[in-house]
């Protein structure tokens, strides 16, 4: 059986004015795979992630997600984005809505569910992230870790095929990181395809199928976590891993 790539990005370039941030990146991700993207800041890993759901418009290249050509002008991008969830470093919950309202908005306005249906789906999603009892709280009444879990619920409620995580724990106090990683681990066990930009090396080691190291707009090397962490082939990878582990 040939495995189907659920995400296939080819030759992605991205310029921000004179800045050449991505210099021809290829990334293929299998269904149910958990890919960790690491690299120094400014290496282009967040930009790559944002090119996959077209929050950034790649300057050139192609992105196909779940068989949909994301960059084609014929693609209804709003429809396509339902299949790709995204979780941000700064949560970006809507502060003027309750947790439930945050989750139901796209269910009602994009997926076209009735209020009752959307409420039921949203409560189920909040339950999955362990926050069923916080449905009526506003983001301001929740801890950072809880906010990030609501953000995850907001994405998974739409039943995406792929989840993108852009440094999901970087803005959290250390004691709150665990609860978010726990939810991510649960998602992984349920078979969700995940692409994670993060420096949580412990999580990468025991949960990732593959680690991708990026530097200066290119993928330098990739492989199973053990080989990337214990036995990197490139000097730049070795230097970066060394730095990370010293902290």
């Amino acid at each position: 059986m040939t495995q189907k790539h659920i995400v296939e990005a080819r030759g992605i370039h991205k310029h921000f004015g004179a800045l050449h941030v991505l210099k021809g990146v290829d990334l293929k991700v299998d269904e149910r795979e958990l890919v960790f993207v690491i690299g120094p800041s400014g290496s282009g890993k967040s930009t790559l992630l944002r090119c996959l759901n077209r929050l950034e418009e790649p300057s050139s290249g192609s992105v196909v997600v779940d068989g949909i050509d994301m960059l084609s002008p014929k693609t209804d991008i709003n429809h396509a984005r339902q299949r790709i969830g995204m979780v941000f470093q700064s949560f970006n919950l809507y502060p003027h809505m309750t947790a439930l309202g945050n989750v139901t908005l796209a269910l009602r306005k994009v997926a076209g569910k009735s209020r009752a249906e959307a409420d039921a789906l949203a409560r189920a999603a909040l339950d999955r992230v362990g926050l069923a009892d916080r449905a009526d709280h506003t983001p301001g009444q929740l801890s950072g870790g809880q906010q990030q879990r609501v953000a995850i619920a907001r994405s998974i409620a739409l039943e995406p095929r792929v989840m993108l995580f852009d440094e999901p724990t970087s803005a959290l106090d250390p004691e709150l990181v665990g609860s978010v990683l726990e939810v991510m681990r649960g998602l992984r066990e349920s078979g969700m395809t995940m692409i994670v930009v993060s420096h949580e090396m412990g999580f990468a080691r025991n949960a990732a199928d593959r680690v991708v190291f990026m530097d200066d707009g290119l993928i330098v090397e990739q492989g199973p976590p053990a080989s990337i962490f214990e036995n990197p082939a490139h000097e730049r990878t070795r230097a970066f891993i060394g730095q990370i582990q010293r902290h």
């Binding site: 709003n78 339902q82 919950l93 994009v110 953000a151």
Partner: peptide, 14 residues
Amino acid sequence: PNGQVEAARSTGLS
């Protein structure tokens, strides 16, 4: 903040 729009757009809102 722009992140609000990005979050909304990422869930498929126009």
